[in-house]
């Protein structure tokens, strides 16, 4: 009876725990198998513990090259899509032009389009224009599919933006450029930063669209896919684990920063009653 009551009281926790286990188990397996010492080409069976792969994770040239390519591609395309996406978001929110409503809607369509379709149509477009497939076409493709995400993240921030802050800056003698540099951009920075991280992450793990448009260029996901036929080296697990760790740290940083902002907002709400202030950071 007691056990039954306990189970009832903790049902939510148990189910949440199981769900988390379901989600995280594959990642744990990857991390654990990065310490494996497999026999033969396949790293699917636990043989014994070793640090060999961790001692020299970049020993396989093709793997390292693919990783470097992916990082370069992600860096260039995320910066490119963040700049373009931010400017598009500003145009969509701040300016009234013919077709603005349509543009606001069209910008989200790539999010709903299957990746296979995007990849295939990009490929046919590149072929029509006679573009040489390779790093360049990958950059174009990655910027293309990241822009929508950037626009959505930055746009929501801009919609909540208190325009009187910019008027206050002008009132205090700042011209348009100074106002943008000192007020608009710093206040937009969290959203722009989030958009940059998001598009970097999207780029570095993209497989489907890259597979259509890479030509002879090999990115990290493409390498793994290729290696899968022959047997994946343990080093892949090591690098995947590293990437995962970096992502977790970056996300933790974002969450901590958000918590701090929320605390400040709470404190402000507690303080004697005004609703007049602008926006939380």
């Amino acid at each position: 009876m007691k056990a039954w009551t306990w189970l009832k009281d903790h049902a939510v926790n148990i189910i949440a725990g199981l769900a988390l286990f379901y989600m995280l188990a594959p990642i744990a397996v990857i991390a654990v198998f990065s310490f494996n010492d497999p026999v033969g080409r396949f790293n699917f069976e636990w043989v014994g513990f070793t640090l060999d792969a961790w001692k020299n994770p970049f020993g396989i040239t093709e793997l390292t090259d693919a990783l470097i390519t992916s990082i370069q591609l992600a860096a260039i395309s995320s910066i490119g899509s963040t700049i373009l996406g931010t400017l598009i978001a500003i145009a969509l929110v701040r300016y009234n032009f013919f077709g603005r409503r349509a543009a606001n809607f069209l910008i989200v369509i790539p999010l709903a389009t299957p990746e296979v379709v995007i990849g295939a149509s990009l490929l046919s477009m590149f072929l029509v224009y006679g573009a040489k497939l390779g790093f360049g076409t990958l950059v174009i493709a990655h910027i293309m599919f990241s822009i929508s995400f950037v626009v959505i993240v930055v746009r929501s921030r801009l919609i909540g933006f208190d325009r009187s802050l910019e008027e206050a800056a002008a009132d205090l003698g700042a011209n348009a450029i100074t106002t943008f540099r000192k007020i608009t951009l710093p206040l937009l920075a969290p959203a722009v930063g989030a958009a940059l991280m998001l598009s970097f992450a999207l780029s570095i793990d993209d497989f489907v669209i890259s597979n259509f448009n890479s030509g002879a260029t090999v990115t990290f996901p493409l390498y793994i896919f290729g290696a899968n036929q022959r047997g994946i080296p343990v080093e892949v697990n090591v690098i995947a684990t590293m990437l995962f760790a970096v992502t977790v740290i970056a996300m933790a940083a974002v969450i901590i920063q958000q918590r701090r902002a929320e605390k400040m907002a709470e404190k402000r709400a507690d303080d004697a009653g005004t609703t007049g202030m602008s926006m939380p950071i």
Binding site: A168, L172, M277
Partner: peptide, 29 residues
């Protein structure tokens, strides 16, 4: 334009710059 006029405004919403401390806010002009 507003930034060239010899006037300053106290806004109804105050419009304080949230990313600057008080000193920086007051020093802005």
């Amino acid at each position: 334009p507003a930034y060239k006029r010899p006037t300053n405004t106290v806004f109804q919403s105050y419009a304080l710059f949230p990313h600057m401390n008080l000193e920086e806010n007051v020093a802005f002009g």
